[in-house]
Design a protein around this nucleic acid. Structure first.
Lengths: 257, 257
DNA sequence: CGCCGGCTTTGATATGACTCAATGAACAGT
DNA sequence: ACTGTTCATTGAGTCATATCAAAGCCGGCG
């Protein structure tokens, strides 16, 4: 299949959400509801996936993709969260996104990884070799359409993040992040606000938060304290946040005038 | 075609490079060499494109896509450059990318635009209606594969830009930009440096540059002056830059230690 | 229980980039 | 050539965030 070969040759590493229904990979939560992005996979597709996939469990803090290394595998996450990032030689780090249950980490079949990925907690995932991936696409060309949709969704998120990193103040970044994280956790529908007093989990360290928002941990901490003092949020513990006044957060996030 | 309908419903607005060879749209330069990303279109594809496309010429400064407005068309650029950006209510603006000859601006067939686009100079382009686009995909499903490739390439660029916006200093941003712009202009192959003393066109105002790099025009100007003083670049006129010492620029851009 | 080590919060100071302001250069129209 | 307009450069001062430093908190483990 020369045309197939071409695809894999040209495909770049990238993090996308396959939003597979369930699971070949055994994940109970990988419904199409993830990002509401594309249809669930068919049973045929799932069965095929089950045959070519390799299941793995990784401990927290495992580096599964390293920038600059040859890209060898595709991953589909079942449970747990992964951070994706790029680094500068002097150690500065920018987290470019997160991948959670249902997300898909596609790698260049040839070429090198252009970002790194580490598990933030114990992670269960399915790994596909280059050839398994290729045969999957051959078997189900419709997958490409689905991948295209999710890749485009990722691009939309990237553009939002560029606006945040390039033009928003520290407090605006924090407010924006909290709301977008709520959307990501499907606490609220895309484009809507969560209800007041909604509690959400936040499995990120302050360092992760800082590296995602282009700030320092001190500034992150100060901004959160500020929001807390003003009664917009509550922080019962380090991994939970209560959104007391989402509308007020939104006003800050979008710099409403 | 229900499946086709679904695609268009879910497709998000996004700027991608179709890298069409040339053209239905009459562009002499739209070779596959653009980004070296995917194969040229076949003659069949080009002929089909010619039938469904609508050719337009736009004056410099025309707003062709506005964030929040309903998305109606797909565009394929023949000549000229377009800036893509997002804005905050108070006027702060972040340019998220540029689209030049051969690039493709895809719009959600339903839904709203998530970014705005304006021509930076006179632009010739082809416009496709939602239905024309849909029939094109129906006719040539392989287009989706190509779009997937270019969407992934755009994601790679976005990730680079996030690192730049979140973690680089002003001078590093300028140096990075100059080199990536050279790559974009195909003055050098991806991943390589241009030859010393290479001259390149830079059809951006300082304001565009600032809004792309998350800086102010003053800081952009100062950083360029600094590079000029140190003999890394030459600025014969506002729309041209000579890269005297690309390696030195690269050392700054990548924060080599 | 109590000490230790890592992470977070808070405080004090420094600084890179922004803001405000003036000057300079390029260009269009008269 | 002159004038007005717009955009770019340069300078001076300010401010938001980074950096440096010191507590505070919390979980693990002896």
């Amino acid at each position: 299949m020369t045309s197939l070969k071409k695809i894999t040759e040209f495909r770049r590493p990238v993090a996308i959400n396959l939003a597979s229904r369930a699971s070949a990979s055994g994940c109970e939560d990988c419904g199409a509801r993830h990002h509401g992005l594309c249809d669930a996979l068919t049973d045929d597709e799932l069965a095929f996936l089950a045959r070519v996939a390799q299941r793995l469990t990784l401990a927290a803090g495992t580096a599964l993709i390293e920038e600059g290394e040859p890209a060898q595998y595709f991953y589909n996450i079942n449970s747990g969260n992964i951070r994706l990032f790029k680094s500068l030689p002097d150690g500065r780090r920018q987290i470019t996104g997160f991948a959670g249950p249902g997300h898909f980490l596609g790698l260049a079949a040839t070429g090198k990884n252009v970002f790194s990925a580490e598990t933030m907690e114990p992670v269960q995932l399915c790994r596909f070799s280059r050839t398994a991936m290729a045969s999957m696409f051959e078997e189900f060309p419709v997958l490409e359409r689905k991948l295209l949709d999710v890749a485009m969704h990722e691009l939309v998120l990237s553009q939002q993040q560029m606006l945040l990193l390039g033009r928003k103040t520290a407090i605006e970044r924090i407010a924006s992040f909290l709301l977008s994280w709520a959307e990501r956790q499907e606490i609220c529908a895309a484009g809507t606000l969560p209800k007041p007093n909604t509690t959400m989990k936040l499995p990120l360290s302050r360092t992760d938060l800082a590296d995602f928002l282009g700030l320092t941990i001190e500034t992150v901490s100060r901004s959160l304290s500020y929001l807390k003092r003003d009664g917009l949020i509550e922080i019962p513990n380090i991994h939970e946040i209560v959104l007391l006044r989402p509308q007020a957060l939104s006003d800050i996030a979008e710099a409403a005038v």
